[in-house]
Nucleic acid binder design. Structure first.
Lengths: 583, 583
DNA sequence: GTGGTTCTCACCTACGTGGTAACC
DNA sequence: CTGGTTACCACGTAGGTGAGAACC
């Protein structure tokens, strides 16, 4: 671990700076939800700042008052930071693969009797395609110069938001429910199957993403038809950024996964696994298939992680050892049948604290070596991208941000017509032809008209890397979510989604269709994710697993100042305090 | 199978005859939901028939109009009938055990956009305790005279309704959702743990029950506080009656379970199970532990059932063999991760049709032999029962039916005070002392005041065995359900229940508490379940697995005539038609 | 000892892992 | 050929079975 830091390319996206303005813009959008077609073509939401409506309380009768402070903290932040130090990778498969470090959040500040929906949007975190260099180790040798992630050309068009969003199965639930115990998103699955019918999040391989959690208040069920008038907050944690891959590139990531994911215990070196992992292959890449002893430095890590793996060993006497409440509390973190996942991990971290603190507590030291991304790689030859770009302009996108625009968050509102979407879909179809991806028979049913309207987004990746930020979601955000849910509902069954939510969002969808789909498409900062700040922003993270991370204000009446949004480093520092930091 | 029919005691409970009156009574209750305390002390609901309010349409603005016809059919009726021919037994354990033939229902007639809750209440189906004679086979011999289920004394006090009710995890959902695919209750678990915290259904061993499905309309979420004003229908299927046991008594039941439940494949004789089952022990009960060859007659059954077991063998190529939609449809019946369960069984039935039709199609022929129950067994010495009966009267129960009253359905409304419930709880506590059941440390927390009000019922078993019947649930029915849900919600977590439901029912609970818990406690017909009719009422069942069973009208404005409720045999005959029979 | 309950076990389903090789 | 994707596999976790012994 301490041997390769300067080769790893851990990236810390700087936060988008005008998040507060976006927030205001959203609020204004909500006030204008008069079911009539209206369009905003402001390239800069700063134009909306003169609207002082956002300082007013909610429209009378629009719902109960908001809670004062809502804070979200990443329970398994330490584990995420370990992965982030190596540039997290997440496997995506056709049938869907879970994220291994799953988002496990401790939520505070909600109204106990209020009702909320929790959503996780996997937001594109880079405008660039990514590439791993020197992955296999063509020649044996401990130097491994040039290994790491670089960028390669512009990003491919991303699936629409409603294909990248996941509604927490408990939604909607009371604030008491969400705050009672950590909320786990471990059931979420990532896929690269564009026609996925399982409500999995559809991503593109070799692209960078960051999970974004949405908390949407939907308290008064009698007012669910006006759900988009309800406030919502979004939270994301920089250390949860990851690159979607179909096969692991960095073997250190593989090692971390094996040593921390209980489902991968079969590959741990402690156990009698059928085939020893291909780890420690940096000295001899062709002979490593045997049970070669490895260097002492690497063994240190193995030992500590093997120790941690013991933490999640199954104990058949558990039901007898613990009393009922304890069992439930333990199961609570594991989230139903979802394996120990990170709960075993969190305990493993505390165990490893005692054994090898330099790995657990000095992850920032390791992270100081993350550097040297190549901001402008020659783009790969992907003609469908160029083709896409051409037609994108033909589709009448009037709010698309320029590729290298500053980190302004731009609201984009288009006249979304069936024709436009059809052409976009056709391009998508061609794109798949280029990629030789499967052309499945479900595809025609997927292009049914109602799916048309909200299933394709012509490359407008969202990006809001700020912690401690909140804003209100526009109507179409939920219309897309609804579409996603609707697909899932009709295709899936007794699974993770529940019709209560569907029925509620169905109404919203109908309204939002009259709304004619204004878009929420903030532009990206130029290579926001490809340029790592010299000072790692994760440094101030607390060493404790619990109550690490992010806190956020959640009060409409006391929004942060518009003119001076906190810098990324500031918001990261605020996360040190653990809860309800006000900066 | 054809060798032992005269020894089996399959029972077919005659339907309660005054179900229609109960229906009217319920409707009247709904009109009186004025949030004030009001009490009905009518021992015979016939007194309510003069109230013509039930013929009126719903109170204006009380909700959308009802759908015309709602029909529910038992998808896996054939499997249930196989078990019912041997008197179905269900294992109950401390931690909860699934029902093996689980209720899998095809629902029709709902409004696609309407919202409904589905609940399963495991209703006591007998006033008697039950006992199996000659279970182990004390002496080897193929005669086995006297084997079978008999009754032994009165039933023990039953857990309260809210401990015997299970909310389908999908609730609430749209009619479209419920009708889109069969609804499976395979996640339901039965327990004998009176202090169960897992929302399992609490039953008493050696007692007879029948599952009752409730469909409750909760369409307008803005009116959920008046949920009990919404209409509800209940359906039950006589062949789903079962006796709760802690260990199987009838080895033929064991055989059926092993041969049809995929999770019990390890005990099938086809496979190389570690220990061959103790089946075919009727000729040599002490030597049967070995791999004895058995009679040809029995082998016929084994062959057909082993063949059927092949149907549910796992196919690793399934994702490739089926397309996406087919895979989902197949998984749909299996209900998420709930094993093949009866879906493999339904196919096995069709397979067995070709091989041994006399077992599949002529189950009524087998059933003609079910007979000779002992209607008046000398009651066992169970002093806590007598103690319970004594205090039951002291508790001020003015609406309790006499033990041998006719099959009138009696609505019981009591001044439910905390004192009364406390005494009832104390008796329950004593009862458990007598039985040497576990006194767990959760017990004190379970007796918290709010739990007090709705968790104890002083022996008022419900009984409505009619098919094709529908009635409206009173407020307290849902208050109890809500209590059940509330317990589950606080004790469980990411599991089967969802806070949407809890939040909605929480409001109802608060209202229902002002309502002061009127009770819905129809009396039982004398030995309704212990006396089998000479002609098996299951005879008219359709041989097809799909669309067998029950249909029911669901229209407030066209209720069945009051004076002449259909006889049990009539309603059973109506089930032949498969759908929307009008008796 | 009897009758019923509980615990443990081997065996199964279901599914989450990364490795591997085939595939394109 | 390269680089990325896919299918399959052994090996885990998690949990649903009845048998059988232990228990009361």
């Amino acid at each position: 671990m301490s041997r390769i830091p300067q080769l790893e390319l851990a990236r810390f996206p700087p936060a988008s700076v005008l998040h507060t303005q976006l927030q205001m813009h959203h609020q204004m959008l909500y006030r204008q939800h008069n079911m009539t077609h209206h369009h905003h073509h402001h390239r800069h939401p700063a134009e909306e700042l003169t609207n002082n409506g956002w300082l007013l309380p909610p429209t009378p009768g629009a719902g109960p008052t908001l809670p004062g402070n809502v804070s979200v903290s990443l329970q398994n932040a330490k584990l995420w930071q370990q992965f982030h130090a190596e540039t997290t990778e997440m496997i995506i498969t056709k049938l869907g693969r879970r994220m291994f470090p799953s988002l496990q959040l401790q939520i505070e500040g909600l109204e106990r009797r209020g009702r909320y929906c929790l959503l996780l949007e996997v937001t594109p975190a880079s405008r660039r395609r990514h590439k791993y260099l020197g992955g296999g180790g063509v020649n044996g040798g401990s130097v491994n110069s040039g290994r790491g992630w670089t960028t390669a050309g512009p990003a491919e068009p991303q699936p629409h938001v409603n294909r990248r969003v996941y509604l927490h199965p408990d939604s909607p639930a009371t604030g008491s429910h969400w705050m009672q115990h950590p909320v786990s998103f471990n059931k979420l699955k990532l896929t690269n199957n564009a026609v996925d019918h399982h409500s999995n999040v559809v991503l593109t391989s070799m692209h960078k993403y960051i999970p974004t959690v949405w908390i949407v208040r939907c308290d008064d069920v009698s007012r669910l038809t006006l759900l988009f008038t309800q406030p919502a907050s979004s939270f994301c944690f920089p250390e949860t950024e990851f690159i979607a891959v179909t096969a692991y590139q960095n073997e250190n990531i593989t090692k971390l996964k094996i040593d921390n994911n209980p489902f991968a215990k079969g590959f741990r070196e402690t156990g009698q696994s059928r085939c020893k992992r291909k780890m420690q292959s940096f000295d001899s890449s062709e002979v490593d298939e045997d049970h070669l002893p490895h260097h002492a430095g690497v063994r240190e890590e193995d030992d500590e992680e093997n120790m941690s793996s013991l933490e999640s060993a199954s104990n058949p006497l558990l039901p007898q050892v613990f009393d009922e409440d304890q069992r439930q509390r333990a199961k609570r973190v594991a989230s139903e049948s979802g394996s120990f996942d990170d709960s075993g991990v969190s305990s493993s971290s505390s165990l490893a604290d005692r054994i090898s603190p330099q790995f657990q507590l000095n992850s920032d030291n390791n992270r100081k070596s993350s550097a040297t991304p190549a901001p402008f790689q020659p783009p790969l030859h992907r003609p469908w991208i160029d083709h896409e770009e051409e037609n994108k302009e033909n589709a009448g996108d009037d709010g698309v941000a320029t590729p290298d625009s500053q980190s302004h968050l731009i609201l984009q509102n288009r006249h979304t017509t069936v024709e436009n979407n059809q052409s976009a879909w056709q391009q998508y179809h061609n794109h798949h032809h280029h990629h030789h991806q499967q052309q499945q028979q479900q595809y025609p049913s997927f292009v049914q008209p109602e799916v048309h309207h909200y299933t394709r987004d012509v490359f407008s990746p969202h990006h809001h890397h700020q912690q401690q930020r909140q804003h209100f979601s526009p109507a179409v955000e939920f219309a897309r979510i609804n579409q996603h849910i609707q697909n899932h509902y009709q295709q899936m069954h007794y699974g993770q989604l529940y019709c209560s939510q569907i029925s509620q969002l169905q109404r919203l969808k109908n309204i939002a269709m009259q709304f004619n789909s204004p878009r929420f498409t903030p532009a990206l900062t130029p290579r926001c994710s490809d340029l790592s700040p010299p000072n790692p922003i994760l440094l101030p993270f607390s060493p404790r697993v619990n109550k690490v991370a992010i806190a956020s204000q959640f009060d409409r009446h006391s929004c942060p100042p518009l003119s001076s949004p906190p810098s990324p480093s500031l918001s990261s520092v605020a996360s040190i305090d653990g809860s309800s930091a006000s900066s």
